[in-house]
Every structure is written in structure tokens, then in C-alpha cells.
Design a binder for these strands. Sequence first.
RNA 1: GCCGACGUAGCUCAGCCGGUAGAGCAGCUGAUUCGUAAUCAGCAGGUCAGCAGUUCGAAUCUGCUCGUCGGCUCCA
Length: 719
Amino acid sequence: MSAPAVSPVTITLPDGSKKEFEGPVTGHEIALSISEGLARAALAIVVDGRTIDLSTPIANDSDVVLLTAHQPAGLEVLRHSCTHLMAQAVKRLWPEAMLEDGPPTEDGFWYDIRTEPPIAAEDLPRIEKEMQKIAGEKLPVTRRELSRDEALAFFAERGEKYKLHIIEKLPADAVITTYTQGEFTDLCRGPHVPHTGVIKAFKLLSVAGAYWQGDPSKDQLTRVRGTAFGDKKGMKEYLELLEEAKKRDHRRLGKELGLFMTHEWAPGTFIWLGRGKILYDTLSAMSTAMHRAEGYQEVFTPMLFKKDLFETSGHWKHYRDDMFIVPGQDAATLDDAGVAEWERHISGEIEGLPEHERKRLNEALEGQTGAKERLSVLLQSETFNTRHWNLFEKRPGEFVAMSGADREVYGLKPMNCPAHMLIFRDRRRSYRELPLRISDQGVLHRNEATGTLGGLTRVRQFCQDDAHIFLAEDMIAAEITRVIGMVRRVYAAVGMDFAGVFLSTRPEKAMGAKEQWDRAEAALRQAIEANDMEYTVSEGDGAFYGPKIDFIVRDVLKREWQVATIQLDYQLPARFGLKYTAADGSEQMPVVVHRALYGSFERFIAILIEQFAGAFPTWLAPEQVRVLSISEKYVDYAKGVRDGLLAEGVRAEADLGDDKIGAKIRDAQLQKVPYMLVVGEKEQETGSVAVRSRSEGELGVMTCAEFRERIAAEKDVRF
RNA sequence: GCCGACGUAGCUCAGCCGGUAGAGCAGCUGAUUCGUAAUCAGCAGGUCAGCAGUUCGAAUCUGCUCGUCGGCUCCA
């Protein structure tokens, strides 16, 4: 490498204009050459597509874009720098704190930090204050390149074990960079803002637990979340947006609108009230109608099956922890010998009972000598009432114990597919029947871990608009194209966009031949492209039994949820030994497609509630029309109007109380009823109604017949 | 399941360092009979999530349990 001669550099700006510099030039200098204002606002610079620090010299002719907080990419740099600002503040307050990773996110940033005790929500104002101070110090942010060994030595000296781990994973010849501001140095790829003073608007929002490397067996870190903006105004708007989002939260709206309730005696499940049941039923009926039109047959299958079914399907082996297990009638009665065996579990003589549970039981049993007393303690203990240890009081005083050897054990189905395999297998099948489409809105139970439950988006009891399609391999592309068409119709009807469509391909532990997978993946790809949809390939994310397409939407809090899904399955047909007779008389195994459009009704309704902010379109609104009487004198007329609507199949109610009309309108408006019909003297005399729309206000007076016509047009929708 | 926070009237929330619980809305009763987002007055409403402990005394402090929320992990 020879020392480069100083040669002129031509910089091309986004508008195409060019600037000449005598030699290497920094982003900061370029900004200064344009205006001082830009130099102050600039955070980083994109050089030929690569974002770098403003202080890094540019030696070659380049196309550049100066980044400020007004561009998404600039905002990302600002937020990334803000994580460092926060980390520095934390280090000042907790010198022993260990830092893990702190990336910017779509709306802000977070940093995983280990302190003892963990940082609490009450600490956030303190940290923010320190951040303000550091920002006020306008510390220059400087970049430094280190070798791997230098970096290891540097962070080892500071006891940053998580940073060491990150460095260790990098290749030996990697150029490692650190960024320093004042006394604080962080391992980071960058780029970063020129100095801490440019970070003016930020807020710390929450603390939450996070596992190191996402591994529950490793250290528990604290994830501190915050956000930053280029100015206070953007910050304020964002916080207001958060408030708005909270108002749209389906849990809140569901309660306010009387859709559903919960009870602590039924954790993870929802009690659907009259209004919510209408949503459920409406979606159910629309789904049924659509599936019939598409050639599906809807079936009705048991909720409870002997475990033999799940052993065949593989659920008993792979999914048992998430299933509700129910003892059958013939299970063994727990006798003295049985109790003695449980006691050997507790003493540790028989291994398998977790140490903390043994300890707890031993403490509970302390001083209890009689067999009956001890049994009573056991029965009241949590351990004996969990799914791992199946001990039940069948009727008072008679106990039933289950062990893996008992055959008479039942399980609540977590999925419909095994039952549908039985249907296919019920008789000989011909190729002429394929694709055989079986749909089912059966109730499913999954014993989800407590910490994963949340609102309607993750529940223990739910229904899917589920279907299984049995077909020959050469039918896959055409059939999946049809299914995607259905998905699109449903989501178009409710005005929802997908946050993503993912094609998940062959995972490492896949079963089946690679050629088979290749064909299946190609068929799925073809189907997506036939529907002209944007999608992302999620390499290696398929289920072990086949590739799949997932449709993702976001809730108001921007959390992503899978709704519709289409999965190919080569394993279940094999496990159940499914076959059909082909045209040439040979016996062939069908492929199974698992698919759901809504996903679960529960999750879909949650997303719909948030999508419409509770103001459902007329066809879905639990109460479509409310008749409001001006005064007592018109109550009978109001009832007549309501009854006329009810007879037409309109979901109408009447507010006949002695409130003033303004109050009644307010009530109806808050309940988000699409139409309010005000009736008083004028209307009674002319057989009419004064129509007010939830969204458009007064629509004027029309005859009852005219209104019925209007609402008939929007009351029924088909997918 | 893990980390953290929270749980007070039907709802939204006050209630300080421990001294025995309060508002608005909703409900009920009465008055009012009213024309497009809240009529007035009165009444009633609570095992302060549950259990145990500390204390003369606990909504308040401690522990456990249950539930909810935010994350993490999981999401055949």
C-alpha cells in the first residue's frame, strides 16, 4: 500500500449536484459546505449506500445522502445513539452494570442490562435525568477500530462478559469497532451521531425481563425500552399515538362495549356476552357460507378423545405438555399402595419430581402422620393438581391416579386434524373425491403456559375456521391458489392489510425426502405468485412435517400475530396410513393441507375490534340500530319502529328511558351503534324516522320503509 | 414456565410516614317529558383479590397463593 496522493474528490448529492473537494472529506465538512443548519442537523451520512459516521473521511468520488432525524434511516441512527446514551447513564448510576445488546427498533430502542438488583420502573426517571445531563455535556462520539484480541482485553478488563461473548462469536480477523463518548465506551458497529448533544427528545418507557440469548436457562437481564425523536414535537405525537392505541385495545373495548368478560376462575378463557356472541356467530356463519360455496364439507367432531388418537397423531409425544388431560372412568383407584408410591416420589426415592416441589411438599407434610391427613395435604398441593401428576378426586374420598401405563386416559383436542384423519380413513377413498375438503369450527383447548396468555390473542380455549384438504401432490399449486384467494377475500372485506406473508421452508430436522420438499415449496411459491402477493421467504422455518405460508397482522400495540396459515403435511397421512385408489388402480397416499383463514375466531375478533376501534361496520355490529324516543309520549311508536326492524332481521334496540335526546345519542354513540333513529311527534305523525349515522351525523328524516331499504343494503355481506 | 409491575364500589381512579375507606360515572328512587354527544335531587353500593404473619392496631409492612398486565421463552 502506497501513501495515497491527495487527489480531488467529487461528491454527488441526492439532487444530482456535484461538489469538488481537494482531498478526502468528511460528512460533516460536506454538510458545512451546504449550510450550517444542515451541519447541525446532520446525524450520519450514506456513502454509496453505506451509512457511516460524519467524521469518517471519504476518499473516493461518491454519491452521498446526509441523514437527519427527518429520514427514517437518520432516526434509526439517532435511536441507536440514544441506547448508548442510556447505557452510559446506567453505567454512571450502576458502575457494576453489565451491558448485553442495545439495538434500535421500529419505534425506539432497547438495551438488555444486568444489574443487581434489576433496574426497576421507578429507576427510569433517574436514568432519564442522567441522560439529559450527558446530552447537555455534548460529548463527542468517537469511533475506534480494534483487533479481536484488543477488544477482548478491553472488555475483559471491564468485566463485560456479555460483550466478550459477542466478540468471541465474531471471526478472528474481524475488525471490531468501539464508540466512545466521555468515560463510556461501547462495543458497536455504528454509525453514531457526532456528539451526545444532538439527542434532544427521548423517553424511557418500560422495563421487562429478557433472557440472555433468549435462553431460559441463562441469565435474566432487564430490557429497558425507550424511544427518541429528532424533536420534542415528534416525541409528543408518538406518545399521543400510544395513548390512542390504548383506547383501541380490544381488552378495553370488549369490556366497554359489553362483548365479553373474564373471570379469575376461568383463566385464559373468555365468557362471550350477548353482543360478543353476535360477532362470533356472524363470522362463523359467513365462514360456513363461504366454505360451502368453495366445496368444503363442514363437520362436527368430539372435543374429547382417548389418548390413542393423539398417540397416533404424535401429539401425545410432542404436544402433551400443552394438552388438558382427563382421566377416563376405568382409571385405577388410588389405594394405600398408591399413596405409598407418591410418598416415595416426595422422599426422592423415586426420581423425577423437581427439587423445589419435593421441598414444598415435605414442608406441607411436616407433622402430618396419619395416612388420611397426609393424603389430604397431597391433594391440596399444587403439584398433584398440575398436568404432570394426574391425581384426581373422582368423588368425595375416592381418588384416582393416572400413570403413563393407563390406557383409559382422554385428552381435550388441541387441534382438529387428528379427527379429520379418522374421517378420511373411515372408508375407501377414490381419486375422484380429491381434493376432499373438510372444515370444522370445533372447540380446541391448549394448556398454554401462564405467562404466554394475554387478551383474546392467546387463549386456552378457542375455535378456528379450520379445514383439512386431502389431495394428490399435483393438485397442490391449484388448491393453494384457491385458498390464498379465500384469504384475500376475507381480509379485503374487513379492510385489513397483512404486516407480512411468509413462506417457511424446509427446516433442518425435516422429515421426508428433499425432492418432495422442493416440489412442495415450489408449489406454494407458485400459488403465492399466482395471487400476485408480496412475500418473504423464511428459510428453514417450516414445520418438520411440511412447508407453510403464514399471514401476519399487527395489533394496535404493533405486536405481530399469525392469523391465516396454510401448511402442507406429509406426516399425518403417513401416521394414520391414509390412502386412496388412483385412476390406475394403485393405492396412493394423499397430502394434507392444514389451513385457517381467520386463524382463531378469538384472535381474529381481537384484531377486528382494534381495526375498527369498536365501530364495527353495520353487517358486524352487535346492535345495528337504536331507536331513541324524544319523550314518553312516543314510546309506543318507538317500540313499533324497533319491532318492524327486528322482523326484518335487523339487530335493533330501543332507548325508551326519560333521558333527554342528547344523552341518549351520547349513549348510543359511545356504544358505537351505526344508526340512531330519533322519533318524536313529527315522525309519529308521518310514519317516519329521523336518521342519525354514527359516523356522518344527521341524515334527515325518511320513512320507515326507506330506512329499512337502506339498512338492508349494508346489513349482509358475503366473503 | 422465567423476570418485573399491578389487584380499593359494576367501571375509571384517590386514599401520604400503619390509626379502621372516598370521588366521578353506572345503578336504584323521585322530580322532569325535553329534538341530535351528559336534566336535577336523593339513596344505596366495599371481607380493600385470597390466605398467613408482624403490630395495641394493616387497604397500607412481610411471605405465600390466585388473577391481570408488560416483556422473555414457547406458539403442532
